[in-house]
Write a protein that binds this DNA or RNA. Structure first.
Lengths: 142, 142
DNA sequence: TTATTTGTATCAAGGATAGTTACAAATATG
DNA sequence: CATATTTGTAACTATCCTTGATACAAATAA
Protein backbone atom coordinates (compact mmCIF):
# COMPACT_ATOMS: atom_id res chain seq x y z
CA UNK A 1 0.00 0.00 0.00
CA UNK A 2 2.07 2.89 -1.16
CA UNK A 3 0.39 5.46 -3.34
CA UNK A 4 -1.89 7.94 -1.64
CA UNK A 5 -5.47 7.21 -2.68
CA UNK A 6 -7.17 9.48 -0.18
CA UNK A 7 -8.42 11.87 -2.84
CA UNK A 8 -10.04 8.99 -4.74
CA UNK A 9 -11.62 7.69 -1.56
CA UNK A 10 -12.78 11.18 -0.57
CA UNK A 11 -14.51 11.71 -3.91
CA UNK A 12 -16.10 8.29 -3.55
CA UNK A 13 -17.31 9.06 -0.04
CA UNK A 14 -18.73 12.44 -0.99
CA UNK A 15 -20.45 10.93 -4.00
CA UNK A 16 -22.15 8.45 -1.70
CA UNK A 17 -23.15 11.18 0.72
CA UNK A 18 -24.54 13.35 -2.07
CA UNK A 19 -26.50 10.64 -3.84
CA UNK A 20 -27.60 8.17 -1.20
CA UNK A 21 -28.45 10.51 1.59
CA UNK A 22 -31.31 12.91 1.34
CA UNK A 23 -30.87 14.44 4.71
CA UNK A 24 -30.06 11.17 6.38
CA UNK A 25 -26.68 10.35 7.85
CA UNK A 26 -24.52 7.64 6.38
CA UNK A 27 -22.60 5.46 8.79
CA UNK A 28 -18.89 4.90 8.29
CA UNK A 29 -19.45 1.15 8.21
CA UNK A 30 -21.89 1.52 5.32
CA UNK A 31 -19.47 3.72 3.40
CA UNK A 32 -16.63 1.32 4.09
CA UNK A 33 -18.51 -1.50 2.40
CA UNK A 34 -18.86 0.51 -0.81
CA UNK A 35 -15.25 1.72 -0.77
CA UNK A 36 -14.11 -1.77 0.21
CA UNK A 37 -11.99 -0.79 3.15
CA UNK A 38 -12.10 -0.49 6.92
CA UNK A 39 -14.53 1.90 8.63
CA UNK A 40 -11.68 3.61 10.46
CA UNK A 41 -10.03 4.47 7.17
CA UNK A 42 -13.29 6.12 6.18
CA UNK A 43 -13.58 7.98 9.45
CA UNK A 44 -10.05 9.30 9.09
CA UNK A 45 -10.91 10.81 5.72
CA UNK A 46 -14.25 12.09 7.01
CA UNK A 47 -12.35 13.82 9.78
CA UNK A 48 -10.37 15.78 7.19
CA UNK A 49 -13.49 16.57 5.19
CA UNK A 50 -15.10 17.77 8.39
CA UNK A 51 -12.18 20.11 9.11
CA UNK A 52 -12.62 21.47 5.60
CA UNK A 53 -16.26 22.21 6.37
CA UNK A 54 -17.62 19.80 3.78
CA UNK A 55 -19.37 17.33 6.06
CA UNK A 56 -20.68 17.00 9.57
CA UNK A 57 -20.94 13.92 11.75
CA UNK A 58 -22.93 12.84 14.76
CA UNK A 59 -22.42 10.07 17.26
CA UNK A 60 -25.10 7.77 18.54
CA UNK A 61 -27.41 5.20 17.12
CA UNK A 62 -28.86 7.63 14.61
CA UNK A 63 -25.44 9.06 13.94
CA UNK A 64 -23.36 9.17 10.82
CA UNK A 65 -22.19 11.81 8.39
CA UNK A 66 -23.95 14.14 5.99
CA UNK A 67 -22.94 16.70 3.38
CA UNK A 68 -23.05 20.33 4.44
CA UNK A 69 -23.21 21.79 0.94
CA UNK A 70 -24.78 21.06 -2.40
CA UNK A 71 -22.69 18.90 -4.70
CA UNK A 72 -22.57 21.62 -7.35
CA UNK A 73 -20.97 23.97 -4.86
CA UNK A 74 -18.08 21.69 -3.98
CA UNK A 75 -15.13 21.79 -6.37
CA UNK A 76 -12.70 18.91 -6.72
CA UNK A 77 -9.94 21.31 -5.75
CA UNK A 78 -11.53 21.79 -2.34
CA UNK A 79 -11.65 18.05 -1.89
CA UNK A 80 -8.07 17.65 -3.05
CA UNK A 81 -6.84 20.27 -0.65
CA UNK A 82 -8.90 18.83 2.18
CA UNK A 83 -7.15 15.47 2.02
CA UNK A 84 -3.98 15.99 0.08
CA UNK A 85 -0.69 16.92 1.54
CA UNK A 86 1.25 16.09 -1.56
CA UNK A 87 3.01 17.89 -4.33
CA UNK A 88 3.25 16.63 -7.87
CA UNK A 89 6.98 16.11 -7.46
CA UNK A 90 9.29 16.34 -4.46
CA UNK A 91 12.33 18.52 -4.04
CA UNK A 92 15.72 17.04 -3.19
CA UNK A 93 15.57 14.80 -0.13
CA UNK A 94 18.87 16.25 1.06
CA UNK A 95 19.82 19.80 0.17
CA UNK A 96 22.23 19.95 -2.76
CA UNK A 97 25.84 20.98 -2.29
CA UNK A 98 25.85 24.68 -1.47
CA UNK A 99 29.45 24.99 -2.65
CA UNK A 100 28.34 24.22 -6.19
CA UNK A 101 26.72 27.25 -7.84
CA UNK A 102 24.11 25.09 -9.49
CA UNK A 103 23.48 23.06 -6.36
CA UNK A 104 23.14 26.30 -4.46
CA UNK A 105 20.56 27.84 -6.79
CA UNK A 106 18.53 25.01 -8.24
CA UNK A 107 16.46 24.44 -5.14
CA UNK A 108 14.63 27.75 -5.32
CA UNK A 109 14.08 27.34 -9.05
CA UNK A 110 12.60 23.88 -8.55
CA UNK A 111 10.52 25.11 -5.64
CA UNK A 112 8.98 27.84 -7.77
CA UNK A 113 8.31 25.32 -10.51
CA UNK A 114 6.71 23.00 -7.99
CA UNK A 115 4.38 25.74 -6.83
CA UNK A 116 3.42 26.57 -10.38
CA UNK A 117 2.66 22.96 -11.25
CA UNK A 118 0.63 22.54 -8.09
CA UNK A 119 -1.32 25.66 -8.95
CA UNK A 120 -1.98 24.29 -12.41
CA UNK A 121 -3.40 21.13 -10.90
CA UNK A 122 -5.53 23.14 -8.52
CA UNK A 123 -6.88 25.29 -11.34
CA UNK A 124 -7.78 22.23 -13.35
CA UNK A 125 -9.50 20.56 -10.41
CA UNK A 126 -11.41 23.77 -9.83
CA UNK A 127 -13.08 23.27 -13.19
CA UNK A 128 -14.96 20.27 -11.82
CA UNK A 129 -17.56 19.99 -9.11
CA UNK A 130 -18.68 17.00 -7.12
CA UNK A 131 -21.93 17.27 -9.06
CA UNK A 132 -20.08 16.82 -12.35
CA UNK A 133 -18.48 13.65 -11.03
CA UNK A 134 -21.84 12.30 -9.90
CA UNK A 135 -23.22 13.00 -13.35
CA UNK A 136 -20.40 10.99 -14.92
CA UNK A 137 -20.86 8.13 -12.48
CA UNK A 138 -24.55 8.02 -13.36
CA UNK A 139 -23.81 8.01 -17.09
CA UNK A 140 -21.83 4.83 -16.58
CA UNK A 141 -25.05 3.04 -15.62
CA UNK A 142 -26.42 3.21 -19.12
CA UNK B 1 6.81 6.72 1.98
CA UNK B 2 9.87 8.65 1.03
CA UNK B 3 8.83 11.27 -1.48
CA UNK B 4 10.00 10.72 -5.02
CA UNK B 5 12.55 13.38 -5.90
CA UNK B 6 13.86 11.81 -9.09
CA UNK B 7 12.49 14.56 -11.28
CA UNK B 8 14.24 17.21 -9.20
CA UNK B 9 17.46 15.24 -9.31
CA UNK B 10 17.12 14.65 -13.04
CA UNK B 11 16.70 18.35 -13.74
CA UNK B 12 19.70 19.05 -11.53
CA UNK B 13 21.81 16.46 -13.33
CA UNK B 14 20.86 17.70 -16.77
CA UNK B 15 21.54 21.28 -15.73
CA UNK B 16 25.04 20.24 -14.71
CA UNK B 17 25.58 18.37 -17.95
CA UNK B 18 24.36 21.30 -20.01
CA UNK B 19 26.35 23.98 -18.23
CA UNK B 20 29.51 22.37 -16.97
CA UNK B 21 30.33 20.11 -19.89
CA UNK B 22 31.23 21.48 -23.25
CA UNK B 23 31.68 18.19 -24.95
CA UNK B 24 33.35 16.57 -22.00
CA UNK B 25 31.83 13.76 -19.99
CA UNK B 26 30.81 14.27 -16.40
CA UNK B 27 31.46 11.41 -14.01
CA UNK B 28 28.68 10.17 -11.78
CA UNK B 29 30.85 10.78 -8.73
CA UNK B 30 31.27 14.44 -9.68
CA UNK B 31 27.52 14.84 -10.20
CA UNK B 32 26.82 13.08 -6.93
CA UNK B 33 28.85 15.68 -5.03
CA UNK B 34 26.73 18.51 -6.42
CA UNK B 35 23.43 16.70 -5.86
CA UNK B 36 24.65 15.57 -2.45
CA UNK B 37 23.89 11.90 -2.82
CA UNK B 38 25.48 8.60 -3.75
CA UNK B 39 26.95 8.06 -7.22
CA UNK B 40 24.79 4.99 -7.73
CA UNK B 41 21.66 7.07 -7.21
CA UNK B 42 22.92 9.34 -9.97
CA UNK B 43 23.71 6.44 -12.28
CA UNK B 44 20.23 5.02 -11.76
CA UNK B 45 18.68 8.28 -12.92
CA UNK B 46 21.18 8.59 -15.76
CA UNK B 47 20.15 5.13 -16.87
CA UNK B 48 16.57 6.34 -17.27
CA UNK B 49 17.67 9.51 -19.04
CA UNK B 50 19.76 7.33 -21.34
CA UNK B 51 16.75 5.17 -22.20
CA UNK B 52 14.88 8.36 -23.03
CA UNK B 53 17.62 9.34 -25.45
CA UNK B 54 18.65 12.43 -23.52
CA UNK B 55 22.17 11.42 -22.51
CA UNK B 56 24.88 8.96 -23.40
CA UNK B 57 27.48 7.38 -21.16
CA UNK B 58 30.84 5.71 -21.60
CA UNK B 59 32.85 3.48 -19.34
CA UNK B 60 36.56 3.74 -18.74
CA UNK B 61 38.91 6.26 -17.27
CA UNK B 62 37.78 8.98 -19.65
CA UNK B 63 34.20 7.89 -19.27
CA UNK B 64 31.17 9.71 -17.94
CA UNK B 65 27.96 11.10 -19.32
CA UNK B 66 27.12 13.87 -21.76
CA UNK B 67 23.99 15.49 -23.13
CA UNK B 68 22.81 14.35 -26.53
CA UNK B 69 20.68 17.40 -27.30
CA UNK B 70 20.71 21.13 -26.83
CA UNK B 71 19.14 22.35 -23.62
CA UNK B 72 16.58 24.40 -25.50
CA UNK B 73 15.34 21.30 -27.24
CA UNK B 74 14.63 19.34 -24.08
CA UNK B 75 11.28 20.04 -22.43
CA UNK B 76 10.67 19.42 -18.76
CA UNK B 77 7.86 17.08 -19.77
CA UNK B 78 10.36 14.79 -21.48
CA UNK B 79 12.44 14.74 -18.32
CA UNK B 80 9.39 14.08 -16.19
CA UNK B 81 8.31 11.19 -18.35
CA UNK B 82 11.84 9.83 -18.52
CA UNK B 83 11.93 9.30 -14.78
CA UNK B 84 8.28 8.18 -14.75
CA UNK B 85 7.19 9.74 -11.54
CA UNK B 86 3.67 8.45 -11.75
CA UNK B 87 0.33 10.06 -11.24
CA UNK B 88 -0.81 13.11 -9.33
CA UNK B 89 -3.21 11.02 -7.28
CA UNK B 90 -3.72 7.28 -6.95
CA UNK B 91 -6.87 5.31 -7.59
CA UNK B 92 -8.35 3.05 -4.91
CA UNK B 93 -5.79 0.61 -3.54
CA UNK B 94 -8.43 -2.11 -3.54
CA UNK B 95 -11.23 -2.07 -6.10
CA UNK B 96 -14.45 -0.66 -4.67
CA UNK B 97 -17.46 -2.88 -4.05
CA UNK B 98 -18.82 -3.89 -7.46
CA UNK B 99 -22.24 -4.58 -5.94
CA UNK B 100 -22.66 -0.89 -5.17
CA UNK B 101 -23.59 1.10 -8.28
CA UNK B 102 -21.34 3.94 -7.24
CA UNK B 103 -18.50 1.66 -6.26
CA UNK B 104 -18.88 -0.09 -9.57
CA UNK B 105 -18.69 3.06 -11.69
CA UNK B 106 -16.51 5.51 -9.86
CA UNK B 107 -13.26 3.82 -10.78
CA UNK B 108 -13.49 4.60 -14.47
CA UNK B 109 -14.60 8.17 -13.75
CA UNK B 110 -11.62 8.70 -11.46
CA UNK B 111 -9.31 7.03 -13.93
CA UNK B 112 -10.38 9.43 -16.67
CA UNK B 113 -9.94 12.35 -14.31
CA UNK B 114 -6.50 11.08 -13.40
CA UNK B 115 -5.49 10.97 -17.04
CA UNK B 116 -6.77 14.46 -17.62
CA UNK B 117 -4.89 15.86 -14.63
CA UNK B 118 -1.73 14.10 -15.69
CA UNK B 119 -2.13 15.54 -19.17
CA UNK B 120 -2.55 19.00 -17.69
CA UNK B 121 0.70 18.58 -15.79
CA UNK B 122 2.42 17.33 -18.94
CA UNK B 123 1.17 20.29 -20.96
CA UNK B 124 2.42 22.71 -18.33
CA UNK B 125 5.82 21.05 -18.14
CA UNK B 126 6.01 21.19 -21.91
CA UNK B 127 5.99 24.97 -21.66
CA UNK B 128 9.46 24.89 -20.13
CA UNK B 129 12.77 23.74 -21.51
CA UNK B 130 15.92 22.73 -19.73
CA UNK B 131 17.40 25.94 -21.12
CA UNK B 132 14.74 28.01 -19.35
CA UNK B 133 15.64 26.34 -16.06
CA UNK B 134 19.33 27.02 -16.59
CA UNK B 135 18.50 30.65 -17.26
CA UNK B 136 16.62 30.87 -13.96
CA UNK B 137 19.42 29.15 -12.07
CA UNK B 138 21.87 31.66 -13.49
CA UNK B 139 19.67 34.60 -12.53
CA UNK B 140 19.91 33.46 -8.94
CA UNK B 141 23.63 34.27 -8.99
CA UNK B 142 23.00 37.98 -9.20
C1' DT C 1 47.91 -5.43 -18.38
C1' DT C 2 46.17 -2.04 -15.26
C1' DA C 3 43.33 1.61 -13.63
C1' DT C 4 39.02 3.73 -14.07
C1' DT C 5 34.10 4.15 -14.79
C1' DT C 6 29.59 2.58 -15.89
C1' DG C 7 25.57 -0.52 -15.23
C1' DT C 8 23.21 -3.25 -12.27
C1' DA C 9 22.14 -6.50 -8.59
C1' DT C 10 21.35 -6.73 -3.82
C1' DC C 11 20.53 -5.35 0.75
C1' DA C 12 19.50 -2.06 4.63
C1' DA C 13 17.28 2.06 6.57
C1' DG C 14 13.64 5.30 6.86
C1' DG C 15 9.08 6.83 5.97
C1' DA C 16 4.37 6.80 4.31
C1' DT C 17 -0.06 4.45 3.70
C1' DA C 18 -3.60 1.33 4.65
C1' DG C 19 -5.56 -1.87 7.66
C1' DT C 20 -6.82 -3.34 12.30
C1' DT C 21 -8.03 -3.33 17.22
C1' DA C 22 -9.40 -0.88 21.14
C1' DC C 23 -11.75 2.41 23.77
C1' DA C 24 -13.51 6.95 25.55
C1' DA C 25 -17.06 10.33 24.39
C1' DA C 26 -21.40 11.49 22.56
C1' DT C 27 -26.19 10.54 21.56
C1' DA C 28 -30.81 8.43 20.82
C1' DT C 29 -34.08 5.25 22.88
C1' DG C 30 -36.64 3.14 26.34
C1' DC D 1 -30.91 6.66 34.38
C1' DA D 2 -29.25 2.60 31.72
C1' DT D 3 -28.22 0.65 27.31
C1' DA D 4 -26.96 0.31 22.62
C1' DT D 5 -24.86 2.54 18.88
C1' DT D 6 -21.60 5.44 16.45
C1' DT D 7 -17.93 8.64 16.04
C1' DG D 8 -13.09 10.21 16.87
C1' DT D 9 -8.69 8.92 17.71
C1' DA D 10 -4.69 6.50 19.54
C1' DA D 11 -1.69 2.72 18.86
C1' DC D 12 0.18 -0.98 16.46
C1' DT D 13 1.32 -3.90 12.29
C1' DA D 14 2.25 -5.01 7.54
C1' DT D 15 3.53 -3.57 3.16
C1' DC D 16 5.56 -0.89 -0.16
C1' DC D 17 8.49 2.86 -1.99
C1' DT D 18 12.61 5.58 -2.12
C1' DT D 19 17.09 6.46 -1.04
C1' DG D 20 21.57 5.08 0.30
C1' DA D 21 25.30 1.82 0.26
C1' DT D 22 28.28 -2.13 -1.10
C1' DA D 23 29.87 -5.16 -4.52
C1' DC D 24 31.26 -6.67 -8.88
C1' DA D 25 31.23 -7.74 -13.94
C1' DA D 26 31.85 -5.33 -18.35
C1' DA D 27 33.79 -1.78 -20.99
C1' DT D 28 37.42 1.41 -22.09
C1' DA D 29 41.72 4.21 -22.24
C1' DA D 30 46.59 4.35 -21.39
Amino acid sequence: MAANSQFSMAVHILTLLATKAGNENLKSEYIAVSVNTNAVVIRRILSQLNQAGLVSSQTGSLGGTRLLRDADEISLCEIYKAVSCGEVFALHAKSPNQDCPIGKNIEVVLCNLQKEIDKTVGDKLNQYTLASIIKKVNLEYI
